[in-house]
Design a protein around this nucleic acid. Structure first.
Lengths: 234, 234
DNA sequence: CCTCAAACGGACGATGTCGTCCGTTTGCGA
DNA sequence: TCGCAAACGGACGACATCGTCCGTTTGAGG
């Protein structure tokens, strides 16, 4: 029999982690970078082979590192996901209750705005069911609820704001940046409007970021003649 | 030579219109109904063959009536698109400026909320370029701008609302209902928040519809342990 | 330097969708 | 009732993507 040590080392080796071979580690990073680039350009459903080619590796290498598209997507945007989670803890560290709340929303939306494929990944991961992460979830949920309660107690967040409204905001924003990946002004504008409406003292209308770059005429609604009569009946 | 009349009639016949054969007209309607059903269930990208099977027709019949998927989608949601366009004219008929504005937003969002596949169709049609409809577009754009100006002049719509914000609202809402087709409460909630923030007198916080049905724990953000330290470090 | 397991890459069969072609059926006018 | 063009339906070839298999290369420990 050959030595057990080498056999064990080989089997139990973390995936392209510290103990992995140098080329494996390098290729893993290349694939992740390529995935972000390709996903940004062609969307999350881009062919796996395209990612592999862009990374300069064979498809087999890609599949070896990431057996499913889902694993690849998660790998590609892990950093963003972690930043989201960290924003939650940072928000509670913020002394001002409203600032903390506002920063959380803005940080997550900014992440969605800046990294092209991330919103789709975020949406795709939406109805998650990895039992292993249940605990982390529960903690995060409690953390956000605490954040909400604190801002409400300070009289800055409207009393009827419900924690689930965060999901409403993020999903809506996701949709916007997915539809208009280039128009950051639109994203900022939406966030500003929403934060405005979350304030308990809706009173003082707050200044808005500059208007969106998109033209209204691009809307489908504007390209269908209404049946029956014409606008401004000429 | 055979009679010209029959030849001309056959060639120039409107697609499954009044002059078409009975079975053709019937099948066209069946296909449209099937398309709505299938799109609602499996999304707009569902295989054409699935639609054909559901309609009880062959694929060839489907393609004969709708040569491209795009044509099918447009056909399936033409009524909704027209209702959108009509809402624009109706809004101007409304005597109260704010009511008119509010009704427009609510009507369009309700359409997106009620018919499953419509939001995706709406998004898909977004950067349209059918030159033929340029005039109708321009008219609709002017109509909406007029609606905005009127509500602003009445001091009910905030002065810095920009007509392009309508697109922001609709795209965001589209994203939300696409992500949560079953949660109408979430949609109503978003619309209420947005309309609130559009009011010039943001002051009086308006009552909100009941909270969304979704659980916060479904958010991806809640399923990633923040790196570095734990929430509520136990 | 030598050895070997780990890692690699590309070819290939499987799968699913598209859209056309063509033989058959059917509605409708004569 | 008859005849024909319009409409129909399903089979089929083209095409794209998937994910595995296997022969080859390579990094690293001895």
């Amino acid at each position: 029999m050959t030595g057990e040590s080498s056999r064990i080392t080989a089997q139990g080796r973390a995936r392209a982690g510290a103990g992995a071979r140098a080329d494996a580690r390098r290729n893993r990073e290349r694939v992740l970078a390529a995935a972000r680039a390709v996903f940004a350009e062609h969307g999350i459903d881009a062919p796996m082979a395209t990612v592999a080619r862009r990374a300069g590796v064979g498809v087999a290498t890609l599949y070896r590192h990431f057996p499913t598209r889902d694993a690849l997507v998660r790998g590609a945007y892990q950093r963003q996901m972690e930043t989201c989670a960290r924003a939650l803890t940072d928000a509670l560290d913020e002394p001002d209750p409203w600032q903390g709340f506002q920063r959380l929303v803005e940080t997550v939306c900014e992440l969605q705005r800046e990294e092209r494929g991330f919103p789709a990944a975020f949406l795709g991961a939406f109805p998650q069911s990895t039992a292993e992460q249940a605990q982390a979830r529960e903690q995060a949920e409690r953390a956000f609820t605490a954040l909400v309660r604190r801002a409400q107690a300070a009289g800055e967040l409207r009393a009827d704001f419900h924690p689930s409204d965060l999901a409403v905001v993020l999903l809506a924003h996701c949709g916007l940046v997915t539809a208009l990946p280039d128009d950051r002004a639109a994203s900022r504008r939406l966030v500003a409007y929403l934060l405005q409406s979350f304030r308990a003292d809706g009173a003082a209308a707050r200044p808005l970021p500059p208007p969106a770059a998109l033209a209204l005429r691009d809307l489908p609604i504007a390209s269908v003649s209404p049946p029956g009569r014409r606008l401004f009946d000429a």
